[in-house]
Structure formats: C-alpha cells, structure tokens
Design a protein around this nucleic acid. Structure first.
Length: 1006
RNA sequence: GCGGGUGUGGUGAAAUUGGUAGACACGCUAGACUUAGGAUCUAGUGCCGCGAGGCAUGGGGGUUCGAGUCCCUCCACCCGCACCA
C-alpha cells in the first residue's frame, strides 16, 4: 500500500476537529506550559513558505511538551486592526472589516492546511468588540494610574489625589516639570486646574508635543514606526509636528525595562536592540550662567570630569533660549541658520555629515574658572535628547574636536601628553590634567569631585538620560480601537467617570467603532471618526452635549496584551480571570521574527509591568524565553532575453557594449510592435558568455548561436535580418519560480505567461532552457514566492513541516529550495515502508510482535535521546536527520518490530502528526497519538562494552582499533604498538609517549 | 563609527563542546529493475595525485600530544543603532 499523504492528512484533520483534540482546559493537575507564536497581521497576500517556519517550530515544541505531560497552551489569533486594511479601503472602497475577515479566513485555511495544534476555541481578533472592550479597559487603567517614584510602581491616580489633598506634591514632582503646590493650594484648585495637574502624572496622558506626522498616511506615527526618516509602512516622508496627542508614559519604566532584560532568556542581539532603544546614559546636568543676562543654560554631559576642557557650548537650533541670548550683531546669521535647518527634512539632517553651525555672540561663564565660553548653535545637537545643549570638550570628544577645528575655536588640553592635537582623546583610563582641583584624579574620581562641587554650588546634579521617548498613542485613522474618552469643557474623562454623567448605554465598554462609508480624514488633522456626527456628539443625562475623542489607538494597542486574553478569551467580566492568569502565567516560549524588537516587544513588556503593578496579574515580564526564527529567502529565477529588433537596413551588426539590466524591460525599444521584434531567450550558460565584457568573444557566440536561428527568423520576418541591440545585449528577467523545475524552464508554461512570449524563440543548451538563479528576499515582485498550499498539495503537510525544519538551524536565514524537499518526502515514504509493503495494492501489514535485538533497541534509544535533547535545544534540523538515520538503520536491519516502531511513531508525532496518527491507529490504538506519552529513554540500551578507537600517530589519524571499554591501559598500548599500520608509521623509531583518552582516542607520539 | 551575529564540499548543513571534519540530505556520475520514471534499489562523490600519500573548516599567527572548536590579529558578509553629548 502506498503512502497516500493527501488521504491520510485529510482524514486526521477532520478527526482533530471532530474530537477537539487540541482543546486546552484552564483547570488541570498537570504543570502548565505556554507556547506562543507572534501575532500575525492577516495581509491580503496570504502566507508564503517563510511565514510558517516559526509556527512549525512552536507547534513541534508544544506537541512535544504535551506528550511529556504538560498542559500546553498554544493559541492563535489575529492582529486585525491596522493601516494596510484602511489603505486598501481607501483604494478600493471595501470596508476594512470585510477585507480583514476575508484575509483572516484565508490565513486560517492556510494554517490549518499545515496541521497545527492550535486550540482555535481561544482565537482572538483585536478588531472584535469583545476583545477591544478590554483594550479600552486597559487604556482606562493607564489613564487612571500614575507612576510612584518612591515605590517604583504604578498606582491608582486616586492615591495621588489623596496625597495632594493632604500634603501637596512636594514629595512627588511630576515627570514633566510642573509647579509645586501644597495641600491648601491643591484643594483650592478648580476641577480644570486639578485635572490639568493630574494629566502631568497619568500613565496615559494628553499633551501637546512634537510628533512624527506622516502626510501621506494622514496620521502620526510612533518613534519605532519611523525608520530612517520615512514611515515604516509605505516609506512615506514624515515631519515633526506639534499636535495634541495621547501618550503612554513608558519612560517611567525605562530603568525597569532595561534592568529586567538581564533575567530574560532572549538572544543577546535582541536584548542589545532594546538596550539601544532605551538608551540609558548616566551623567550630570550642569547649569552655566550666561554673561550679562539672568539666563542660564542647562547642559547634559556624561563626562563631568572634562569640565575644565570646555571651550564652547552648542545649543540645538530649536533651543528656546537662542533668540533671547543672541547678540544684535549675530541675530541675522543665527536666524538664517535656523531657517536653513528648518528647511531641511529629518532625513537630510540625519544624512548630513558636513559640519555647520553659527555663533550666537553670547558667552557662558565657566562655573569654576569664570572663563568666557562662546555659545554656538548647530544641528548636530538634538533638541529631543538631554537638555538640547552640550558643553563641548574638543580635546576629549571627536565631534566637538571636528567642530572646533572647522570654526577655529582654540582647544584646551586636559589630557597632557595623551592629547596630540591630531585627534580628540577618548580613552577612559587616564587621569585628568590642567584642571584645577581635579588635576591628577582618575576619570571616576574627577567625576565624583565635580558632581560634589556643582551640587554645593546648587548648579548641577547627577542625572540619568534615556533615549526612549514616551509612546504616541493617537492615530488619525478609522480602523482602530476608539478611545473610551469623552471631553467635557475640553477636559478628557473616561466614559465611566461620574463627572460626565453619561447615560447608561454610553458609559459602559466597549465604545463601538461606528460603521462608515468613507475614510476621508476629518477636519483639522482629525481622523475619519470626526466626520461622524452621531459618534462624536452625545448627550449626557443632564442634557449637555459632549464630544468624544475621535482618534483611534495605534496598531500596537491590541497586540500589547493579547497573550493574556488567550488564557481566558471568553471572560465577559474581566480581561483575564486572576486565577487563570496565575495558572498560565508567563509565556514560556515565544517565537517570532526580529522585526518586533523595539516595538511590540517593548510595549507588551511595559503593559505587563503596569498590569502587574496594579495587581491585575502576578508576573511582570510577559515572555520568558524568546526564539527568533530566521527568514526564509526566495530563490529567484531569471530568463535572459536578447535585445533584438528587425534591422531595417538589413545589416546584421554588432558593436555592442555588454550590459546587464536586470528585471527591466529594454529601455531602448519601448514601443515597438512585438511583431516587429522577435523575442529570443538564451539559456543561462550562453547568457553568461554573452555577458562577458569581451566584444570579440560575444560576437563569435552571436555568430555561432544566432546565425542559424537568424536564418529561420528571417523567413518569418520577410527576409529581414535580426538586429542585436548595440547597447544592451541581454536583459535578465525574473520568471515565476512555479514555471521552473530546479533551474530548468517549462517553456510551454512560460510562453503562456504573457501574450508577447507566445511566439518567443528559445536558444537551449543540451536541449534544455536553464535559468539563472539568485537568492533574494521572497516577494511578489520578484516572482519567487512559494505558497505553502502548493507544497502541501504536492508533498503533504508532514513533508512540508519536516522539510522546513530540516533546512537548517531555526534562527538562521536561508533560501528556500523546492528541489530539496524530495529528500524529506523520500524519507517519509521509506518510513512508511517499514510498516507496509508498498508494491502491493492491498494492505500488506509488515509489523510483527517479535522481540527486538540489542542493536535495534540501541538504535531506538539513541534516537529517543537525540530527539528529546534536540527539541529542548530547538535543534530541529538535527532531529529530522536522526529520524532519517534510524529509518535507514531499521531498513538495513529489516526491522518491522512493534517494540521499535511504536515508540518511533510517538517520537515522530510532533514533527509529522498526520502520518503518525495514521500509523498509531494501524498499530491498534483508538486514541490520538497526541495524547500518548513521549517514549522514555533508557541508558542501558545504549551503553557499549567496546569502542572502535581512532589511532593517531603524531596527531594524525591513521587507523582504527577496537578495544573493550574496561581493557587495561597497558594492554591497549601494547596492542596498539604491535599494530601493523602503527609499526609502519613508527618506521622503527621508538615511541615517545602514548596519549590514551578512555572512550575517545589513542595518539602515539614519535 | 558602535553593538550583535555569521564564515566548513557544487548546495542546505552536521560535529557529543578540545579527540576519526563533512553525519543527514540536495545535486551530480555510473549501474540494476522497468513499456516508462518525477518510483525503488546498489555503488561513488571535499580538493590534488595513477599511487603511496598530501592538502583542507575566511586569511595569518599562537597554545596543545591533538584545534572547525580556546587565545591574538586581520578580512568578508548579514542584522540593529547611529551627530545620543
């Protein structure tokens, strides 16, 4: 009986659905394990073979853990809100809800096709009101919370109000600088004033701030959604714009987010990316007074020890004091420099390497020496970092050094002989010189001394700076979660607050996203919701007309907490039940790509920490272990088209320069009638020769290969010769990989691809058309996308799953090669033949109940050990190899014994669940193999009594000899020396020494 | 520039952590069975050499009886960050 994978897989998929095989209970005696895939956004393009790589790995791991006796939570759902669906709606008029639903259905179908053991009863979709009700609820929690720096925890804002009422804010300065007030003042504030103050503390707060505005997308973007000065999605230009926006005060958690990274089992690269993004730097803030004014400028420095090396000061062009301090003489120059900076896009400023700047005419006064320090402005100082002002120490900082040189500012040397005048001296293992009271001190000691001194003078203090900014949380878009916020007298309240006095129907969550027919932006940069009067305006029980927040939440809102909802997806009264959350706890294994390093992974850590601080969950990190799968790259195929046209003058000339113009249509022949233009494709090796820069050789090839063809074509084209373009000989054109078998083109299929190719001519090699190949990103435009559905149809899901794992280590990127899948498919067929006689039409069951031999047991237990160890190491490629090895071994041993094959089927079940189920059933079981126990490894079967030792002479391997493991060393040495081959290499010389490593090797030194 | 990672056959890759480099596959070459083969099986396949043998894990140096693995140094590629004070 043949291995009929499509029948088998069909049957078991149905069985799993019918029997709810993968349903997971929240109450059980078993220990829990939580295996999670990163939330997919269901794009219109569907899955390609690169996407399931991580899903397969997590599926194997989840199945393995389950067979080991764990209660395994392994859910799947969809991040369904987001910009692409809305852009698509703008383009096509289809409602995002409709396209999203369609895309999700397609994704689910593709996922199910691969045989994943998801508990679909736990599926969540962020755009489902039952889900976003709780996203809104968490937002309310953030709104009604503040970060207490004394306890280092988030706490209810009500606690803060109590504090203010009793003692004012003296002990609790706000994260942004607000006025200090006592209890009396606070109690005298009116509602608006109180609310205004509280807004400075809330974890979700409204603020006028510079945000990244993307005009093309008509929305603001978060810092991590802007990459290299353009929007991450779509690559549109962005600009800074001051807007009133919601923010999340993630900066309060900067230290916590940074320090708890150390305890996570994440890759170093991933942790580094987060550390980088958080960007902690410790230093000091020091105030410099400005000569002849009352102003002083705060600078941030990480090197207070270099304070006597300050030669000038630089302010960001956006610094607010610039106009106040600039002298009349410099006013014009400064203003024109600021205008110049404003005219430049963020992208240009980032790319700029040229030094520019402008002197303000003002001088700061050195706090210790009293020296006059010129104040400059320059775009290399960033307004958003530190205080937007620096003290420049050219002898100790490269950029300051370059700036001083460019503008001829004299440089003070504070490093003695270490500073040569050629470069800044940035080494940190020296003592400071020429620096008054800190001369001779080490950097650390000098830093302490300066910090003490500035503190005594009251002009400076130790500070820590973060690169991390608070997260913008408003989007001027339709397809997202509405805020549970209503404004009264321009003060925002959550809908349940009594001050609003909303009618019952309006004060409970969720705030539903209204249906719209158009997605045009609203007035004044507001989102589409602002156009819907019935949504925006609502009347409270006092008859007042109030206004809703019209922005929606960003894409990361729903994905910041989804892993919690899977635990308890149908809970109507809580976002997750407390006991349930306690049971499932952290995600034990989280698998996904590296692209979420600083976005999703940082926000979900932040949300988790807040929910923990507020007592809603019992853990403060969401993802214990993180595994990043590599990308599967596409393997593109090319055909090589000759640039030809009919030569009107009937001459066959070639004077060409040989150029490759990959993927482009010949630019020289834009609008010729295809009938006038014979299309000729040459096979790869010919194209390669034609691509040579040697014109003479190219000519010869053209004569050899093309003249005969030319004759034939001439007849077709009324006797005219074919003319080879003098500019470009060939174009390499991407060809759809589905029309290529390995590298051989299916010419007939290719001809049908595009009308103009119907009559194309092909110049073959060895009777075949061979395509060129290159590894590129898998993408539609490169025609190298491979759809898993096609692979599953051709080879089956089990083969597909094992092949993806077999490709190499999970975290490495590697190209897809459809050809290679045959090896894995052959393996499964070979495995099948251990159970069935394939040649016979009828079921010919080969399995017997005989006692297994020592050798067979050894093969089995070696495999049990290897599989279990490797799965724990996520080394799935070597596990697949081991399955191949034991299958080959059992065939050699002609072993068809149940005692061996039954455990083997169980071992295989996580990898190839369909065929494992089928064989398991044929072996006489009436329950799913998923419920079977993972086979137990027994040491006794693999212990050996003898070892075939490699014998080396002077470290070079020469022969092998077998010895009992308990043989005496002397006896072995004697026997080795007596060995013929050893004798030969000794060449009669006496041996110096014998290195004998028991169980490993023997080395004879001459 | 800084940080992280990777370099092993024609290709994807193994190597119990210092002990027989290239397991397992793809591809390729022969052959067998076949009307046929995109089925199956057998043999071969790192490079040089007829051979004995020699050379081989990005390059160079070192430690060691022994190095893909440890140390130093240089190079290439990939990813992230980047006037971050």
């Amino acid at each position: 009986m043949k291995y009929n994978f499509s029948e088998i897989e069909q049957k078991w998929k149905q069985y799993w659905t019918d029997h709810n095989t993968y349903a997971v209970a929240n109450t059980t005696d078993k220990p829990k394990h939580y295996v999670l895939d990163m939330f997919p956004y269901p794009s219109g393009a569907g899955l390609h073979v690169g996407h399931p790589l991580g899903y397969i790995a997590s599926d194997i791991y989840a199945r393995f853990k389950r067979m080991q006796g764990f209660n395994v939570l392994h859910p799947m759902g969809f991040d369904a809100f987001g910009l692409p669906a809305e852009q698509y709606a703008l383009d096509t008029g289809q409602h995002p809800a409709v396209t999203t639903e369609k895309n999700i259905a397609r994704y689910k179908e593709q996922l199910n096709n691969i045989g994943f053991n998801y508990d679909w009863s736990r599926e969540v979709q962020t755009s489902d009101p039952k889900y976003y009700k709780w996203t809104q609820w968490i937002f309310s929690q953030l709104f009604h919370s503040w970060y207490n720096n004394k306890t280092q925890k988030a706490a209810p804002i009500a606690d803060l109000i109590t504090i203010f009422e009793q003692e004012g804010n003296a002990g609790y300065p706000s994260p942004k600088e607000t006025e200090m007030f006592n209890a009396e003042t606070w109690n005298a504030y009116d509602e608006a004033a109180k609310r205004h103050v509280l807004m400075q503390y809330r974890l979700a707060y409204l603020d006028y701030a510079e945000v990244w505005w993307c005009a093309a997308l008509a929305t603001v973007l978060a810092n991590d959604e802007v990459v290299n000065g353009v929007s991450e999605r779509g690559g549109h230009p962005v600009e800074k714009k001051k807007m009133r926006q919601w923010f999340l005060r993630i900066t309060d958690y900067a230290d916590n987010l940074l320090s708890s990274l150390d305890h996570l089992e994440w890759s170093e690269a991933m942790k580094e990316m987060q550390r980088n993004w958080i960007g902690k730097s410790e230093g000091a803030q020091i105030g410099f007074s400005i000569a002849g004014t009352d102003h002083s400028i705060e600078v941030f420095t990480t090197r207070p020890d270099t304070i006597f090396g300050v030669d000038f000061m630089v302010l960001a062009p956006e610094h607010e004091l610039i106009l106040d301090i600039t002298t009349a003489a410099q006013k014009e120059a400064v203003e024109s420099y600021i205008t110049y900076v404003k005219s430049r896009s963020e992208r240009e400023r980032m790319a700029e390497k040229k030094i520019s700047g402008c002197f303000t005419g003002a001088y700061a006064v050195h706090p210790f020496s009293g020296k006059q320090i010129p104040i400059w402005i320059s775009e290399y100082v960033l307004a958003g970092y530190g205080t937007g002002a620096i003290m420049a120490v050219p002898s100790g900082d490269e950029r300051d050094f370059a700036f001083a040189n460019h503008f001829n500012i004299p440089i003070t040397n504070i490093f003695g002989d270490h500073y040569t005048g050629e470069h800044a001296f940035t080494d940190k293992n020296v003592s400071i010189e020429n620096s008054d009271f800190i001369s001779g001190l080490s950097i650390a000691a000098a830093t302490e001394a300066v910090l003490t001194a500035v503190a005594e003078k009251g002009i400076g203090k130790r500070t820590t700076n973060f690169r991390l900014r608070d997260a913008g949380f408003s989007r001027q878009r339709y397809w997202g979660e509405p805020f549970p916020i209503v404004y009264k007298n321009d003060i925002p309240y959550t809908i349940d607050e009594p001050e609003l006095a909303l009618q019952d129907a309006d004060k409970t969550l969720p705030v539903l996203l209204p249906h719209v027919d158009t997605y045009k932006p609203g007035p004044n940069g507001e989102g589409p919701l602002a156009n819907i009067d019935s949504f925006v305006h609502l009347t409270n029980s006092a008859g007042e007309i109030l206004r809703r927040e019209t922005n929606t939440m960003p894409g990361y809102a729903g994905s910041s907490w989804y892993f919690l909802r899977y635990m308890d997806p149908h809970n109507d009264t809580e976002f997750v039940g407390a006991d349930t959350a306690q049971y499932w706890n952290q995600v034990d294994l989280y698998i996904g790509g590296t692209e979420h390093a600083v976005g999703h992974l940082l926000y979900s850590r932040f949300w988790t920490k807040v929910l923990y601080d507020l007592g809603h969950i019992g853990f403060n990190e969401p993802f214990k272990k993180l595994l990043n799968q590599g990308m599967i790259q596409g393997s593109s195929r090319f055909v090589y088209r000759l640039n030809t046209s009919i030569n009107k003058s009937n001459k066959n000339t070639f004077t060409g320069q040989v150029t490759e113009d990959k993927g482009a249509i010949n630019p020289l022949l834009p609008s010729v009638n295809p009938n006038d233009n014979p299309i000729i494709f040459v096979s790869e090796s010919i194209a390669k020769k034609l691509r040579t820069k040697d014109d003479t050789e190219a000519k010869t090839i053209i004569d050899d290969f093309l003249t005969p063809i030319n004759k034939g074509l001439s007849e077709k084209y009324n006797g005219k010769a074919v003319y080879i373009s003098t500019e470009y000989i060939i174009n390499a054109i991407h060809v759809d990989v589905s029309m290529v078998d390995g590298v051989e083109l299916d010419i007939e299929q290719f001809k049908q691809w595009r009308a103009e190719y119907n009559n194309a001519e092909f110049i073959l090699e060895d009777g075949k058309y061979i395509c060129g190949a290159e590894v590129e990103k898998m993408s539609k435009s490169k025609y190298n996308v491979v759809n898993p559905d096609e692979i599953v149809a051709q080879y089956g899901a089990d083969t597909f799953r094992m092949y993806e794992m077999f490709l190499g280590p999970i975290e490495m990127s590697k190209p897809w090669d459809t050809k290679g899948i045959e090896g894995v498919h052959r393996f499964l067929k070979k495995l099948w033949r251990l159970f069935f006689e394939e040649q016979q039409e009828q079921t010919q069951w080969l399995v017997v109940d005989e006692e297994p031999t020592k050798e067979e047991l050894k093969a089995l237990h070696k495999t049990i050990k290897k599989v279990a160890d490797d799965i724990e190491k996520f080394s799935f490629n070597t596990t697949v190899s081991q399955f191949m090895i034991i299958t080959n071994e059992l065939h050699e041993l002609k072993c068809h014994k149940r005692a061996i094959l039954e455990p083997l089927v169980a071992l295989l079940a996580p990898f190839a669940p369909h065929v494992a189920e089928e064989l398991w059933q044929r072996l006489g079981h009436d329950t799913s193999v998923a419920a079977a126990d993972f086979p137990k490894f027994e040491e006794q079967y693999i212990t050996e009594s003898a070892k075939l030792y490699p014998i080396a002479i002077n470290g070079k391997h020469r022969t092998n000899m077998e010895f009992a493991l308990d043989a005496a060393t002397e006896a072995i040495e004697q026997e080795v020396l007596a060995n013929e081959i050893v004798q030969k290499w000794l060449e009669g010389k006496p041996h110096k020494k014998i290195i004998f490593v028991k169980g490993k090797m023997i080395n004879v030194i001459v």
